[in-house]
């Protein structure tokens, strides 16, 4: 039972971490709560479904196609709808909700409200210490690691990374230093959307694909990112595992209350924030006078 518990926490946490990193990145840099983040996740999942099951492409090209198209859509919508009204924070927030609704409705029109599935890349399961874990879950764990390493490498080892971090710290000064803030934000948006899309193609086969699938992970992702400290990627990863731990605890300890796992995860978030108002690794907003 204990092995089952540990393995379950690891696997769930990995999936959540993958979802949360992109959201964390765009918030940290653009100070923008992108409520359409998981809508890109949904788009990629549909892309995977459409390419592989309806067009009959092989998995690898479906994955690449879905990620590229989703990223392009995200970048385009940022350019057209958000960039010009960046100053109005609440309006940006609202436009991201509206965008998510547009994507949801477009998917509804195109594919109907049916529950769909994206194909798994590797079918089957592996038995570790008597506990069964699907290959897809292991794959998502592996991809989380790769993605995190890549993101870290980009942020710390490249010139682009320095520009992104500079913008994240103070957009105005960065601008004065000759960094094209608008372009950096666009690139960051692209990276974040690509991360959402990657999680879409990797996680979607584990879940069910339907037009409303963006709403519940959105809440989960926001909880994780806030818990870890907005803008801190390390915090998001740790937050993901904390939330996974709480959820799995609920399922294992009170099976008849398994439906409360979201409520308990959110409660954990509230408690942590009351103790540490800036999240586990976040910056203190008190210092920032916007």
């Amino acid at each position: 039972m204990f092995q089952a518990f540990v393995i379950q926490v690891l696997v769930t946490g990995g999936v959540y971490a993958l979802l949360a990193v992109g959201f964390s990145l765009i918030f940290g840099v653009a100070r923008m709560i992108n409520l359409a983040h998981t809508a890109f996740f949904m788009l990629a999942a549909y892309g995977m479904f459409f390419c592989s099951l309806q067009l009959g492409l092989d998995p690898i090209s479906s994955i690449i196609l879905s990620i590229v198209v989703t990223t392009l859509i995200a970048v385009a919508s940022y350019k057209v709808f958000i960039d010009r009204i960046r100053e109005h924070q609440v309006t940006v927030l609202l436009i991201t909700i509206a965008l998510a609704m547009v994507f949801q409705e477009l998917m509804l029109l195109a594919f109907g409200a049916h529950f769909r599935a994206a194909p798994t890349l590797i079918s089957g399961f592996w038995e570790i210490f008597g506990v069964r874990v699907t290959y897809q879950q292991l794959l998502s764990l592996g991809i989380v690691l790769v993605v995190l390493i890549c993101v870290w490498a980009i942020l710390l080892r490249t010139k682009l990374g320095i520009a992104i971090r500079a913008t994240a710290q103070d957009a105005e000064i960065a601008n004065l230093m000759g960094i094209n803030v608008s372009r950096i934000l666009l690139i960051t948006m692209g990276i974040a959307a690509a991360l959402a899309a990657i999680s879409g193609v990797v996680v979607a086969p584990l879940w069910v694909v339907y037009p409303y699938m963006w709403l519940s992970p959105l809440v989960m992702v926001m909880a994780i990112v806030v818990l870890g400290g907005l803008g801190s990627i390390k915090g998001s990863v740790i937050g993901a595992f904390i939330i996974a731990l709480v959820e799995t605890l609920v399922v294992f300890l009170v099976p008849a209350g398994a439906f409360l796992k979201l409520a308990f995860a959110l409660l954990a978030m509230v408690i942590i924030l009351v103790v540490r108002p800036e999240g586990l690794f976040g910056v203190i907003f008190e210092e920032e006078r916007l």
């Binding site: 409360l260 924030l273 108002p277 999240g279 976040g282």
Partner: peptide, 26 residues
């Protein structure tokens, strides 16, 4: 809890309350 929090942290905590209550309702 909201008094201690600012900006997005506050938004996200307020988001949690109705969802927690929904769990209680169920």
């Amino acid at each position: 809890p909201a008094l201690r929090l600012r900006g997005p942290y506050l938004s996200l905590v307020t988001l949690a309350f109705p969802l927690i209550l929904l769990g209680v309702v169920k």
